[in-house]
Amino acid sequence: MQLTQRAKQVDRRPMTQLEKLYLWNIAKGMWITISHLFKRKVTIQYPEQKRTFSKVFRGVQILNRDEEGRERCTACGLCAVACPAEAITMEAAERQPGEEHLYKEEKYAAKYEINMLRCIFCGYCEEACPKDAIYLSQTFAQANYDRKGFIYKKEDLLIPNPKEDPDAYQRAVGERVTKPLSS
């Protein structure tokens, strides 16, 4: 039974005697395989060689600092609300007098945790952040010995201080951060 009249007849010519030969087909397959010996390799030797990622690649999060090395995060909690995987938790604290060189605004995150086993790298935290404090970097391969190690604390997420170690800061910032030094 044909349910529609729209099926098109395809050209299905019968196989020639040569094509019916098993050996010929094996030889043809081997020819394709052998010809690839002389072509450029498409693979890279991963841990030694590393490929570059695009600017928009979504990897492990970083917490950004401003140009004076102060933390930008104000613990407003918008990233935690936006997170589909509920991976982000934080605790806010008031900035004390004398801590102005550490935190950019009066409120800061005393505790900031991202559970990397839950994170799905969707980039919604970055999109939600009004202070440009959280970015997704180009780092992607995390490894750890136990599950607890995957709960990244603030120390793991914070970017190196641009004043103390500008090279490390630049490396960590990568290309994705659009406004690294604007205040």
């Binding site: 990622f53 695009s54 928009v56 690649f57 979504r58 790298f121 980039g123």
Partner: peptide, 12 residues
């Protein structure tokens, strides 16, 4: 895909 979307398999 990675260049435009930012991820390779689960593009979002």
């Amino acid at each position: 895909m990675e260049e435009t979307c930012g991820a390779r398999l689960t593009m979002n």
